[in-house]
Design a protein around this nucleic acid. Structure first.
Lengths: 100, 100
DNA sequence: TTGACATATTGAAGAGTATCGATATAATAT
DNA sequence: ATATTATATCGATACTCTTCAATATGTCAA
């Protein structure tokens, strides 16, 4: 069940920032507006928008406009693909069970 | 079977570079000297040493001195841990089978 | 201990990135 | 149309990182 292969460098760069990982954690299982994320992170709104754009470009968040707001949520499937690809490339002898 | 938890930001930063991923791929399943890596990457020796240090600090390579040479190899187990931790944090609803 | 080889460290230049104030764009309501 | 709210973009600053030449350190052989 192979999908389109992930660019592991782009994937790693996208998640290689503390602020971005905070944002990712916050909107992992929720659909949140930009302002919601601003409130929960104490990061300025332009900074949040900037990080969301990076995550979006990497395919790691989905977004939809609802009226004035734009709601974002983490694309867990794509996250899983990225992790898989990294593990396949760099841990081929250590296949790993991610299920808890 | 939980080990010491991985700092996912440090992990992501360590692998978030094209040159480093080249090095990681090259010494994934082999024990290579710094010069071997230099030859296979066309990257200057100080640059290779620099990247190896970053990977070492993150625990992603092991090294042992053999005479004049220092041999490096990717720590696949730690790579797998890093991938697991990222997936657990950011793809909790998408448990993933990494086994081919 | 001298010379040769292998790797690590230093120092500097350039590229890239994070951050945020100011401002522009978008959507809605009055 | 105008005001209000929400988000995106711009521009500047500061910081971090990559890269490599030069040099230092470490190892071994003669």
């Amino acid at each position: 069940m192979k999908q389109k292969p992930v660019d592991t460098v782009e994937f790693a760069k996208a998640i290689a920032d503390e602020t971005r990982q905070k944002i990712m954690a916050i909107c992992c299982c929720e659909l949140l507006s930009v302002n919601d994320i601003v409130d929960k992170t104490n990061v300025a709104q332009p900074t949040v928008s900037h990080h969301l754009k990076i995550l979006k470009t990497a395919g790691l968040v989905r977004s939809e406009r609802h009226g004035k707001q734009v709601l974002y949520t983490l694309n867990q499937e794509r996250m899983a693909e990225g992790c898989c690809q990294v593990a396949e490339n760099f841990a081929p002898e250590h296949p790993v069970e991610l299920v808890d």
